[in-house]
Design a protein around this nucleic acid. Structure first.
Lengths: 232, 232
DNA sequence: CGTTTGCTTGATACGTATCAAAGTTGGTGG
DNA sequence: CCACCAACTTTGATACGTATCAAGCAAACG
C-alpha cells in the first residue's frame, strides 16, 4: 500500500491517538483497494467481512426495501468509516455501499479489527464517538422526515452535502457540491420521488438559490437555503 | 440503594461481563432515583450530567422542533440506557426524557462513567454494541418514514411496542401493550397528526386487528398487522 | 360539578405521488 | 463527425393521502 495512504489513515480519528509503536503494529492489518465509479463495496444482507475507511472518493449507503423503493441514508467521503455497524455486532450489512466516483479504500477484516479494539482501548473509545456522531445525524434525519416538507428536506440535504463535498464554484461565486448525484439520488436521500425532487430543485434554481454546472449543483444563496431548511 | 436493584443492574449487558471484584468497584459509582409518571429526567439542550439505566417503568425520548411539533424517537424500558449519546461526546442532550409511568433509575455521573470505560474495556465494548443496536433501529425508522404510509408506520410502531411492553391480554386473547400512550404519542412516534393516528387506530379496531382495554391497546391479529407493516 | 385532557368525527384544502410523454445529455460505435 | 441508444431530466394532468380546521363527546380530576 502506498505510503501517503498509510499516513492518511494514521491521521484518521480512529487511529490518531495511537503511539508510533502501536500504530506500526496496527498498520500490518490494513489493506488497500480501489474501485471504479458505480461499483459495490458490499450488498445489504452480505455477512460482514471488513471495515472500510475511505481514502479518496465518495460512497453512498443505500437501504433497499421489500418492494423496490430505496433510501439513500447517507453519502460518505474521505476518512469516514463504512460498515462499522455490521462489523461490531456480526449481523449482515444493513445497507448496500455503492461508489459514486472512483474510490480508494483501506480495509481491515472483522477479526483483525476486533483484536485491535480489545488491545487498544483508545481505538475503542474513538469507535464510540464515531457511532455517537452517526446516531445524532440519524436522529436528526428522523426528525426531518417526520415533520419537514419535501422542500425543507431537500434544502437540508443540499446544505449537508455542501459540508461533505463543498468546493468553491469554478466560475462566478457560490459553493459547488462536487459529488455526482442524480435527481434520483436526491429523491432517495429525502424520501420523495424523482419528479418531486426535480420540481423542487428547479424551483430553487429559478429563485436564484442554486445554479447547475455540468451536472453539479452550485449553491448561490446559502442563507436563503438555510431559511427554507428552518421552514421559511 | 436496594440490593435487588443492584443485582438487576449488575445483570445489565453493560456490566454483565465484569468479574465480581470489578463489579464491586464499579457499583460504588451507582446512584438510585425514583420519578413519578410524567416527570422529566432531563431536557433537550441540558448539559450531560449522567447516564441513566432504567430499573422499572418506561421513559419516552422526545425531540422538539423549532416550531412546536415534537417527535417521539423511542420508548425505553427496564435495563435500557438513556443519555449515552450526550455522555460520550459531551454535547447537550439531543432529546428530552419523560417518564410515562412511575420509574426507578440508576445513574452514573459522566465523569465516573468515563473512568469506568477507560478502566474496563469489556464495558466499553458493550457500549459499542448498544450504540450499534440504536443505530440499526434508527436506520430502520428512517426507512420507514421515508417510504411507508402512515398505516404501515403505525402498524410497525405497534409491533415494536409489543416487543417492548407486551403482556398477555388480561381477558380474552391477544397481546396487550402495557404502556400508557396517548394517541398524541403514537402520532409523534410515527410522524403524523393526532387526528390521522386516531383514524388509523380506529380503522384497525374496526377490522378486528386490535382492541382497547382501559386505555391500553391489545393486539388481536399480529399477523394481520405484520402484513400491513410490510405493505398489504 | 365545572374544567381539563384526551378522543372522535366530518368537511375541506393542500402537498405529493403517480402516470404519461417528450426533451436533454453523454457515451458508443460506425 | 454523426447517428443512435440509454440514462437522466423535465413538464403536465390527475388522483390520493394526509394535514388542517372545526366541533362535539367522554372520561378523569381537583
Amino acid at each position: 500500500m502506498k505510503w501517503e495512504m498509510m499516513q492518511g489513515v494514521r491521521k484518521t480519528p480512529l487511529f490518531k491517538s495511537l503511539s508510533e509503536r502501536d500504530w506500526e503494529d496496527v498498520a500490518r492489518y490494513l489493506h488497500g483497494h480501489c474501485y471504479p465509479a458505480d461499483s459495490y463495496l458490499f450488498f445489504q444482507g452480505d455477512p460482514p467481512e471488513a471495515l472500510y475507511i475511505i481514502w479518496s472518493g465518495r460512497v453512498k449507503l443505500v437501504r433497499h426495501t421489500d418492494q423496490g423503493r430505496d433510501v439513500v441514508v447517507t453519502v460518505l467521503g474521505p476518512r469516514q468509516l463504512i460498515g462499522e455497524m455490521a462489523i461490531f455486532d456480526g449481523r449482515p450489512y444493513s445497507m448496500t455501499a455503492v461508489t459514486l466516483e472512483d474510490t480508494a479504500v483501506v480495509t481491515i477484516t472483522r477479526n483483525d479489527l476486533m483484536e485491535i479494539i480489545h488491545r487498544y482501548p483508545a481505538v475503542s473509545f474513538e469507535v464510540i464517538l464515531e457511532l455517537n456522531r452517526r446516531l445524532r445525524l440519524c436522529n436528526e434525519l428522523v426528525r426531518s422526515l417526520a415533520v419537514d416538507r419535501v422542500e425543507q428536506r431537500i434544502a437540508r440535504a443540499l446544505l449537508r452535502l455542501k459540508d461533505l463535498g463543498g468546493a468553491p464554484a469554478p466560475e462566478g461565486d457560490g459553493v459547488m457540491i462536487d459529488i455526482h448525484l442524480t435527481r434520483q439520488d436526491i429523491a432517495e436521500m429525502t424520501g420523495t420521488t424523482v419528479e418531486t425532487a426535480i420540481r423542487v430543485m428547479s424551483r430553487f434554481r429559478k429563485s436564484g438559490l442554486t445554479r447547475n454546472y455540468k451536472g453539479r449543483t452550485i449553491l448561490l444563496d446559502i442563507e436563503g437555503l438555510e431559511a427554507i431548511a428552518r421552514g421559511r
